[in-house]
Amino acid sequence: MTTIRTFMTDDHHRCDEFFAEAEQAIGKKNIEAARASFGHFRTAVLAHFDSEEKTLFPTFEAKTGMTMGPTQVMRMEHQQMRDLMSQAQAAIDAGDTDEYMGQAETLLIMMQQHNMKEENMLYPMCDQHLSAELPAILERLETELCAE
């Protein structure tokens, strides 16, 4: 059965895949391909953040009354990752692969530990508290994330 946890975890993995493609392209010194893959990665991650911040988190907050709890920390980490992605974008645009790899390394670990907190804690909490709204939320997340 599709749950918020499985659906959103799959989307994390889709983003990871683009990230890996960009890094492999850098490894093959194909900067054009790396730029394209990083572009896909950034678009996918930003769409993921948006659907969490506009759809999932507000619904969770409204239902549980927890507005300053986990969702707030997740928003803060989203901002840190947006900053890291801008810096990585600037580096790859300038063709500075060393700088890009440094930013990418930091971004990867930041992103993975963030995903882990969502996948192991926040999403299960969402599934638990939003069971009544589940079909409607999943439908909205699907339209938001599978649009491109």
Partner: peptide, 9 residues
């Protein structure tokens, strides 16, 4: 958000 930290490497 006001000052950027150096990347890990």
């Amino acid at each position: 958000t006001k000052a950027t930290a150096p990347a890990m490497p």
